[in-house]
Computed example of a mutant assay.
Amino acid sequence: SGADPQGALDAAAAAPGDVAAQLLAADIEVLSGQADQAYKRLVGLVRRTAGEERDTVRQHLLSLFTIAGPDDPAVASARRALASALF
């Protein structure tokens, strides 16, 4: 709420390691119908982070999965990608 969508996406592109910027960009992508892109963004971030940051990203991604529901093919694909990133 109150975020400039394009500004947030630009900020995330400029700072790929900024967890907060990536989470906001993923939220904007989900809300604008680009959930698959959001999932890819966060799975990539899971791969690049560790510890508490990694867990924060993982939990946020799981919360985004609940929006689409378990039967969404993009969620199923992203869950497999997340499992691969974690193990």
Rank of each mutant, 00 (worst) to 15 (best):
S1P: 12
D4S: 11
D4M: 08
D4L: 12
P5T: 02
Q6S: 10
Q6F: 13
G7C: 01
G7I: 05
A8G: 03
L9Y: 01
D10P: 02
A11C: 01
A12T: 06
A13K: 15
A13G: 07
A14W: 09
A14R: 10
A15C: 02
A15V: 06
A15G: 06
P16A: 10
G17S: 12
D18R: 05
V19I: 14
V19T: 13
V19M: 02
A20Y: 04
A21L: 05
L23V: 06
L23R: 09
L23M: 13
L23T: 07
A25H: 07
A26K: 09
A26R: 12
A26Q: 10
D27N: 09
D27I: 11
E29Y: 10
E29K: 13
V30W: 05
L31N: 14
L31S: 14
S32P: 03
S32Y: 07
S32W: 08
G33E: 04
Q34I: 04
Q34V: 05
Q34Y: 06
Q34H: 14
A35Y: 09
D36C: 07
Q37K: 15
Y39I: 06
Y39M: 06
Y39E: 10
Y39D: 00
K40L: 13
R41M: 13
R41G: 08
L42Q: 12
L42E: 09
L42K: 14
V43G: 10
V43N: 04
G44M: 08
G44Y: 08
L45P: 03
V46L: 04
V46K: 02
R47E: 13
R48G: 12
A50E: 13
G51I: 03
G51P: 02
E53Y: 00
E53I: 00
E53C: 01
T56Y: 04
T56R: 15
Q59A: 15
Q59D: 11
Q59K: 15
Q59E: 11
L61Y: 02
L61W: 01
L62E: 11
S63M: 05
S63P: 01
L64W: 02
L64N: 03
F65V: 07
T66G: 00
T66V: 13
T66S: 12
I67L: 11
A68L: 15
A68E: 07
A68N: 07
A68Y: 00
G69T: 03
P70Y: 12
P70R: 04
D72R: 07
P73N: 01
P73K: 02
P73D: 10
P73M: 00
A74Y: 00
A74D: 13
A74I: 03
A74Q: 13
A78P: 11
R79N: 11
R79S: 10
R80E: 13
R80F: 06
R80S: 14
A81Q: 14
A81S: 15
L82Y: 01
L82V: 03
L82A: 10
L82D: 07
L82H: 01
A83E: 12
S84C: 05
S84K: 08
A85N: 00
L86C: 03
L86T: 10
L86A: 09
F87N: 09
